[in-house]
Design a protein around this nucleic acid. Sequence first.
DNA 1: CCACATCTCCCCCCTTATGGGTATTGCTGC
DNA 2: GCAGCAATACCCATAAGGGGGGAGATGTGG
Lengths: 215, 215
Amino acid sequence: MDMKKTKIIVADAQELVAEGLRARLSDIPEFEIVGHASTGTALLKALATHEVDLVLMEVSLPGMDGIDATRKLHEQFPNVKVLAHSVLTAIEYVNSMLIEGASGYVVKSASKEELTEALRAVMRGEKYISEEARKSVEEGYRFTEKRMDGEYVGLTAREREIIRLIALEKTNEEISAILFVSVDTIKTHRKNLMNKLNVRSTAGLVKYAVDRCWI
Amino acid sequence: MDMKKTKIIVADAQELVAEGLRARLSDIPEFEIVGHASTGTALLKALATHEVDLVLMEVSLPGMDGIDATRKLHEQFPNVKVLAHSVLTAIEYVNSMLIEGASGYVVKSASKEELTEALRAVMRGEKYISEEARKSVEEGYRFTEKRMDGEYVGLTAREREIIRLIALEKTNEEISAILFVSVDTIKTHRKNLMNKLNVRSTAGLVKYAVDRCWI
DNA sequence: CCACATCTCCCCCCTTATGGGTATTGCTGC
DNA sequence: GCAGCAATACCCATAAGGGGGGAGATGTGG
């Protein structure tokens, strides 16, 4: 019999989700939810003081999102495992989380059984990816020509700055004024962003920014 | 002593939120969560068979959103109270919910105490609106010239169809082909949408559509 | 040192969107 | 029947976005 419980922190903007998870896992003795963080920054702070085995990480987090939080987490706490836990299943998010070191990706609508199975798999050192996420990634590759190489391209800091301003309804000219660069530079960044994210208009960029809570 | 419990259904895309609410209200005997619906359609179906006093309604719901669901709910079940429960606090959502007959608007980050207070107020026949939502509405009026009259302008069915297609990265020409109308018509709708929602670009329209889960 | 990535800026050309009108049709409510 | 609204369509114009290319200035890491 295993006396050592797996200590879990839930990173999710909504505390209600954490409470729901706590209720859901309450009768499974091997797991214990020891805390909740509603932002990436709060999560890193909590990890510094608590002993934690695993983080159930939402991708959409205000401030620092789940992808960035996972990167920083693995730099500072390489032994803490991360299981992504989100409604988003688009290829960009799944790939980003796995690249940053997540051990799996469970959709938020997963049943109690699937969730516990995923948690156990991750603690055994295996990967677990929900069917929906896996399917979405496959279809993402099927319907795009730009990603057939299988390589994920992350955004640079500058690109994030710009996509955020785009989502805030700024025009290229306004953005160029804010960042003190030429309008052509913004146009170039915009083109690069659309190529990287495989979208064809402002709408796609905005959706990406909103999904990642960059609003 | 009141023997009659208030029967509540939670309408939220995430079942985890419903579980969190159940856990949160479990030690308050006057309330009982009798069900959960993850879409507006499912909610109306559940109301037809269950006896319910109040619906805790998320604004963002897949399929039929919370605003439409509240309208239909009040047509079919005028005695069921609705308490909006969402992360969104933008003026459009708060006003829309209240106009459609919601008795209050509680933010999702509200404490257990605030939530129970809101539930009790609504069951007494009073209105309850969270501070954040109230503030957002006031500021919405302060910073816009187009809404100073205080009148909320709802979107028509056609406008929703079009804003959805815009958010799906369609161009005006593609939308016109899908709906079998002229490009000029789409342009007109687009202009009307931007005026009604008080945004100045595609980005604003996309954010609105995403927030309402029209994706 | 070289390779690589990032950020910057420029060229050309074309499409699309935005903002101001006006106007017709049909439907609904008074 | 008339007022009001929704949906349709057109005119004018300018502003903004989108797609192709190239290219110099950094800094970082192998």
